[in-house]
Amino acid sequence: MNKTWLVLPLAGALLSACVTINIYFPAAAAEKAADKIIDEVWQSQQGAAKPGDKPAADAQKEETK
């Protein structure tokens, strides 16, 4: 009788441990990340193609002067 009471909480803990693996995956964040990549691959938002490239080129020019 006593043993059963001991096992149950353990089983509960194990069960929850199993369940947490699924919950652990940040689905909402993954969805957001996927959308960001999909936008870039399919160029859904025109013009937002390559941030950062141009400013660097400008900076270089200034320095060579």
């Binding site: 353990l10 509960g12 929850s16 947490t20 652990y24 940040p26 909402a28 964040a29 990340a33």
Partner: peptide, 22 residues
Amino acid sequence: IGMLLGVLALSFSAATFAAADI
């Protein structure tokens, strides 16, 4: 108590990682 612990563990992990970033 066992179940409570289980639920606690569940909610804890959910709370901890829901905000996780990819």
